[in-house]
């Protein structure tokens, strides 16, 4: 029998993280090449959390009594913090809206098409086709269809997530053991009641990985949309920094992403884990 050591495991993970951070610092000291004068290719932590962080105040458009750098104000940590919050909120809101929209649409459509063997056959082939279509290839098309404002980005994220959730739902419903469906029917369940009480709970374990997968795709989609044309958001910050070869800023925003994606994955895993109290431990962890 395997013995689990959650505390020890956590310490090991932390040690690995610390080693990575240390490695980065060593690299910054050894490899001192610069992209342009005063702009190191590899910025050490002492640079990232002082000068780089401060420079993010350039992205604050002004307001709340904190004037914008563009209007002649000095850079400040407060403005930098506000800039991070503002642009993060924009990105996260787009992601959340797209996630809700695409998730619900994908789930409902997937359930509807799983209704009968005929409708399932109908979508089998087109589904494989749509799944293999690279998401980012669709960015320019969506921008022309829906514009480069928030709507276009949300629709794009919803599309990216919707396809994954839809395919995942169809697949999960197909894999429900027939015995549960037979048992429910034999006990007198109507089609709709069966969907609610058997199909939906039965697909939760499979949908869990689908949702985690679509979350990753969602972050990719929202960034992709922001790279091309958005005037706010974390993706916009990265593209703007790229134009001036501000490598340290790009790295700092990338770190923010690491933080957000980790948090969103943990939150989602917790939420779905609670819905799986009935499942064997292997499917919950």
């Amino acid at each position: 029998m395997k013995v689990r050591h959650p505390t020890r495991d956590r310490w090991i993970s932390l040690a690995v993280l610390a080693a990575l951070a240390l490695g980065w610092q060593v690299l910054s000291l050894v490899y001192t090449a610069e992209a342009q004068p005063g702009e190191p290719m590899v910025a050490g932590w002492q640079v990232l959390f002082t000068r780089t962080l401060l420079s993010l105040s350039d992205y604050w458009p002004g307001g709340l009594g904190v004037p914008a750098v563009a209007d002649g104000a000095e850079r400040s940590y407060l403005a930098a913090l506000l800039a991070i919050l503002l642009h993060s909120a924009d990105t996260i809101l787009r992601l959340a809206a797209g996630l809700m929209l695409g998730g619900v649409a994908g789930l409902v459509l997937g359930l509807a098409l799983s209704w009968s063997r005929w409708t399932r056959r109908l979508v089998d082939w087109p589904l494989q086709f749509i799944r293999t279509l690279p998401l980012l290839a669709m960015v320019p098309l969506f921008q022309l269809w829906f514009g480069t404002d928030a709507l276009g980005e949300v629709v794009f994220v919803a599309y990216g997530i919707g396809v994954i959730v839809f395919a995942g739902t169809v697949n999960a419903v197909r894999n429900i053991p027939q015995i549960y469906l037979d048992n429910a029917r034999a006990l007198g369940a109507s089609r709709l009641f069966l969907t609610r009480t058997v199909v939906l709970p039965a697909i939760v374990p499979a949908m869990r990985s689908t949702v985690l997968l679509s979350l990753g795709a969602g972050w990719g989609a929202v960034l992709g949309a922001e790279y091309l044309g958005a005037q706010s958001g974390l993706g916009y910050m990265i593209v703007y920094a790229q134009q001036f070869a501000f490598l340290d800023r790009m790295f700092l925003v990338a770190l923010l992403f690491v933080f957000y994606t980790s948090v969103s994955t943990v939150v989602l895993a917790r939420l779905t884990g609670r819905m799986l109290a009935w499942a064997p431990e292997g499917q919950r962890a």
Binding site: D182, A186, F193, T197, P201
Partner: peptide, 27 residues
């Protein structure tokens, strides 16, 4: 008519008592 299957048909996502109630709930 009621059916007991050869393989396990008890719904794993419902507690035991909810399983036993299922048919009555359907009606």
């Amino acid at each position: 008519r009621g059916m007991v299957f050869q393989r396990d048909s008890v719904f794993p996502w419902m507690r035991v008592v909810d399983n036993v109630e299922y048919g009555l709930r359907c009606r």
